[in-house]
């Protein structure tokens, strides 16, 4: 284990994880909005601070975590998560409670993750998808619970197949994965209930 695996956790776990959770709850309850995270954790790259904070807040020994190829390339991220959360690392995305993705382009298809069952749709993976920011050229136009009319989110970079996979994920409802988008210091969420709509299909007010 690298010695820096031991540092970079929350300085005040109770208070800081509560703040991160409330930002997450707000993002999950209002898809399309972004929530800023304050000073938090300093995970080893390529895990970014927002994704690290989300995992440090929610993951523990009960939640298997899947790391994509980029995050598992060096052992530093797995060591850091292991020390600060105790979460077991799994290589099969279908077993994961959380999945951290640093390379969206190369990520497994959404349907490869744990999708829950019709009886227990909550037993599904929450993806923590690292992005550079929310100022990308292509908007995702969202509707559904948490959104008054329609909302726009511009996370980038995302693979070209992402919109189609998100539609496929919605078609499985109530099964499916939930996604947290993590830029360096801000997060947004795409819970499974969200629908992608074409900008031309905006409902009338």
């Amino acid at each position: 284990m690298a010695p820096d695996a031991l540092s970079g956790g929350f300085a005040d776990p109770g208070r800081q994880s509560q703040a991160v959770f409330r930002a997450l709850l707000d993002a999950m309850a209002r898809p399309g909005t972004t929530a800023r995270l304050g000073q938090g954790v300093r995970p080893p790259p390529p895990l970014n601070p927002a994704a690290g904070a989300v995992l440090a807040t929610l993951a523990d020994e009960d939640t298997p975590v899947f790391l994509d190829a980029r995050l598992s390339a060096q052992g530093a991220v797995a060591d850091w998560l292991g020390f600060h959360t105790g979460a077991p690392i799994v290589s099969d995305p279908a077993e994961a409670a959380f999945a951290a993705i640093a390379d969206p382009e190369g990520m497994p298809p959404l349907a490869a993750f744990r999708l829950g069952s019709d009886e227990y749709p909550d037993r599904s993976t929450t993806l923590v998808l690292q992005v550079d920011g929310f100022g990308g050229p292509l908007p995702l136009v969202l509707a559904g619970p948490g959104i008054a009319r329609a909302a726009e989110l511009r996370p980038h970079p995302l693979p070209a197949r992402f919109a189609e996979e998100l539609r496929g994920n919605r078609a499985l409802f109530p099964r499916g994965v939930d996604i947290v988008l993590a830029a360096t210091d801000a997060i947004a969420a795409l819970p499974r209930a969200v629908r992608l709509i074409d900008a031309g299909d905006l409902p009338c007010t």
Partner: peptide, 23 residues
């Protein structure tokens, strides 16, 4: 804190699946 984490995970799933009862 561990109990809060467990409850927080349940709350997030509950918000993601409106109306579904998360154990």
């Amino acid at each position: 804190e561990q109990t809060k984490r467990m409850i927080r995970r349940a709350i997030l799933k509950a918000v993601a699946i409106p109306g579904y009862q998360v154990p």
